[in-house]
Simulated scan of single mutants.
Amino acid sequence: MTVDIDKTAGPEDTPPAGPEAIRAIPVRHYGRYVSAVIAIALLVAVIYAFSQGQINWGAIPDYFFDQRVIDGVLKTLLLTFLSMVIGIGGGILLAVMRLSKNPVTSSIAWFYIWFFRGTPVLVQLVVWFNLGLVFTYINLGPIYKDYWSSFMTPLLTALLGLGLNEAAYMAEICRAGLLSVDEGQTEASQALGMSHSKTLRRIVIPQAMRVIVPPTGNEVINMLKTTSLVAVIQYSELFRVTQDIGQTSGAPVEMLFLAAAWYLLLTSVFSVGQYYLERYYARGSSRSLPDTPFQKIKSHVLSLGSPRGGVSS
């Protein structure tokens, strides 16, 4: 018996020809180029318009570190800090009262929030400042008694107007943060015998800070800018000081630009602080924390020495 072998047949394990590589062509977004050109043109037009005015730009650096301006900046920071202390403390108290099952305390908190959120802060400042027209004395019984004009100083007027108004907004922020904590946490702490106040301090508030901190940072920045309103009650903060310098130096517009520059500088510093504070309280909710600005700069600097698309040897 013989077997014929076909010597012309190719090897059985020859792989078939693979598919051709797909050539991907990115989509061109022409609208982005058009919008970029329009934005640049508008920016150039604004710069050109300001360059035509008779503005003494040299007056801004001349008075930027003037002692009167520095004192105004320090008073602005002090007013911002004290007003936020009043606002945060009052906001926490009002939020707890608002969530209370006692209808009296809950109604009082609701009325406070309704009144102070419903009236402009400028009106509140002017009302506090002019109460001396209808009250001659401030009489707190055996605790304190004095003339209203001596008691209600511009600083106290500013603190009452800004701090009490801020408490109404912080109350809603704190209430939202407290409600974000699962009720099971409270029930578990009460089952362990913890009191209501201790549950708030040790269980609820620490977890609610993750929700409270971001809008509170925005409120601090907003408070820094809102302090400019106290110029109407003769408190010498940054805006009032720059106005006075502008009237005496003959450069009122330039001094307004100077005040705007200081506000931008301060809000930028506060924004950086807010970023790190949010990053701190996000540790328990995020698996990986975002890089800090210094870490981003470091990673970009180190990546400059590495070849793209490969690993350096």
Rank of each mutant, 00 (worst) to 15 (best):
A259K: 00
I221H: 15
L155D: 12
E219C: 11
G163D: 11
G53N: 13
V44E: 01
E20R: 12
Q124D: 12
Y281Q: 09
R28D: 14
R28L: 15
K296Y: 09
G89D: 06
I5T: 13
V204C: 01
G10N: 03
G132R: 09
R279C: 15
L162Q: 10
W110E: 07
M209W: 05
S299V: 05
V96N: 08
E254I: 03
Q54D: 15
E219Q: 15
F294W: 14
S197V: 11
G89H: 05
S189L: 08
S313C: 02
D71C: 01
I113Q: 02
S197N: 12
I143M: 08
V220K: 00
T157R: 06
S268V: 06
E166K: 03
S288D: 13
M97R: 01
T226F: 00
S107P: 02
V46R: 11
R240M: 12
I55P: 07
G309M: 05
F239A: 11
T2H: 14
G217Q: 10
V27W: 14
H300S: 14
T14M: 07
L164W: 05
V121C: 03
D13G: 08
T186S: 12
R68H: 07
I86A: 06
Y63D: 11
I38L: 15
F239I: 11
I212T: 03
S268F: 12
D182I: 08
T105E: 04
R279P: 11
Q124S: 08
I221L: 14
G118V: 01
S285Y: 15
E166Q: 12
A171C: 02
T153D: 07
L238Q: 08
G18C: 12
A208V: 03
G58S: 11
I40N: 09
I113S: 06
D66K: 04
D13N: 15
